[in-house]
């Protein structure tokens, strides 16, 4: 009997492995952003892995900093400073345009509530990335003890980074704008044309696509797209990116455009999570 069982060991192992995979798909399959929260033991184990990742990240950053001594460290620092300055000015410009437009609308709409500059921000540090070439996830570690919830917006000075997917301890996974699962409701800052930004999963250029732009809407290259505030996840007037190209269609109701995100996701180290409004 045992011999007969032994001859089927390979099949049993294969069956067990396939059953485990099917169980994982059955438990987590088809869940959207923010719907896949780990259980308490799961969160504990995931936090353990995140601490390992944090330690390895710190060690690698230390090695990188040591190697910088022998390379063009001044140039790197100068480049970094200028990049931050450009991000700040871009954000300032976008905010100014948004405020001007808001003022114009406020004259028409009595009681319109001002929502800018009133966010509660929790700083966090990027400690790891996904290891899949097709999905775009960052792991961040909070610097404060703010309570994070799924779907909270994550931003930097340059614009929108993404939204929180999973939280565990002081860590969280963030789905980037360029992840194929990401959908963000946007409007053009110039023409107020409305669309939905969908990630394409591209790694090098992080391009995304703007769908549901009406054919008659005048969208052109260089248009800055900002969050519309619809959907209740992202506050309005946060920069998402600029239009890279527009594809006009002869038929159908909508046109499509490619969007270049305003944030270079490969270079961000510190982010802010919008935990609420003041």
């Amino acid at each position: 009997m045992l011999d007969r069982f032994g001859s089927y060991r390979g099949l049993i192992a294969t069956g067990a492995l396939v059953a485990l995979v099917l169980a994982l798909v059955a438990v987590a399959g088809g869940r959207g952003i923010g719907e896949d929260q780990p259980t308490s033991p799961g969160a504990w184990l995931r936090s353990g892995l995140a601490w390992i990742q944090t330690g390895e990240h710190g060690a690698l950053a230390g090695i990188g900093g040591y190697l910088d001594i022998f390379s063009d460290a001044d140039l790197v620092r100068e480049n970094e400073r200028l990049r931050e300055e450009v991000d700040r000015l871009r954000e300032e410009k976008a905010r100014l345009i948004g405020v001007l437009q808001e003022n114009a609308r406020l004259r028409k709409l009595v009681g319109f509530k001002r929502r800018h500059n009133e966010y509660e921000l929790a700083p966090a540090r990027i400690v790891a990335r996904d290891v899949s070439p097709y999905f775009r996830i960052l792991t961040l570690k909070l610097k404060t003890d703010a309570a994070l919830k799924p779907r909270m917006p994550v931003v930097v000075a340059g614009g929108v980074v993404g939204q929180i997917h999973r939280t565990y301890g002081s860590f969280a996974d963030v789905v980037l704008v360029s992840d194929p699962r990401s959908r963000i409701d946007v409007i053009s800052q110039r023409s107020r044309a409305h669309g939905v930004v969908k990630g394409l999963g591209h790694a090098e250029d992080y391009l995304a696509e703007i769908s549901y732009l009406r054919r008659n809407d005048r969208v052109r290259e260089g248009d800055v797209m900002v969050t519309s505030g619809m959907g209740g996840i992202f506050p309005p007037e946060l920069v998402v990116g600029t239009v890279d190209s527009v594809t006009q269609r002869e038929r159908g109701l909508f046109q499509k455009a490619r969007l270049e995100p305003s944030v270079d996701y490969s270079r961000i180290e510190e982010v802010f999570v919008i935990t609420g409004t003041k």
């Binding site: 990240h57 950053a61 790891a128 990335r129 290891v131 996701y265 270079r267």
Partner: peptide, 15 residues
């Protein structure tokens, strides 16, 4: 994952 975060290298990765 720590290496990708530290270097900003994302194209392809090492799988």
């Amino acid at each position: 994952s720590a290496l990708l975060a530290a270097t900003g290298w994302t194209v392809g990765g090492l799988m």
